[in-house]
Amino acid sequence: MNEHVKPVYLEEKLDEIRADGHLAYRSKSLPTWCPGCGYFAMQEGLTIALNRLGIRNEDAVVVSGIGCSSRFPFFVNTYGFHTLHGRTLPVATGVKTANDALTVVAIGGDGDGFAIGGGHIPHAARRNVDMTYMVFDNGIYGLTKGQTSPTTAVGFRSKTTPYANEDQPLHPLMMLLAYRASWVGQAYAGRPHHLADMMEQAIAHRGFSYLHILSPCVTFDKTDRTYANLNMQVQDLPDDHDPTDLMAAMAQAAAHEIPALGLFYREERPTLTDVMNDTAERARNAPAPAE
């Protein structure tokens, strides 16, 4: 039947959704984000991903900092930790280090991650802490009502850049590739199906996975990173892209102003826990230190 005019029968659709089970990963509280916010798509995606991976609610911990996106843990039915601005990764590292059985998802916005918390990211990445860090990048400070963020485009006018932003935005994908995050991918709020797939892969990855998610701020950015603009600009990685090739990943990340969606890079290497276990192993085998 024709897609545009095919009748949709609600009860069949609801049965399908309920049978699928991902609603169980939502909390009772309605998200307080502005209507239209891309974070709703992230939330929907994470619940789908956790559901598909069969991770039990109680085995997941979502850690966040300060910002609109960091409200996230309140709206999912898992363990959550809403910490201080920019301090997400250290807290999450602590959680993961304490209990390796947990699935730890660290969530933050572009401000929380790359401004105040920017100093923490390279260290979490190079240590390969087995967690997923998702940055919800809307290129703006939403919670403080619309100032520029490290990923705001050049030329954007915000309350703190009334004569247009001149700072070159950070390139998180290239940074994270450079920091040697062991899984680097990108998704977009306007493509909820792909987003959920990428979240699933990121969480399934063993090691520090970094998922960058493009999302419009519908309240404070009406000109730049809007759904309309992103819809026109986003594209998929080429089919023949080899995610094990770091230089190819770098090249892809650098190829477009808005880099493509998909998995840029993936490698397998010991996690922080592996290293700690290894260190412990070596320590046990080493001669006792002198008195």
Partner: peptide
Amino acid sequence: DIYPPEIRGF
């Protein structure tokens, strides 16, 4: 003026 931390929540 008194306003809440949510941007356009409730």
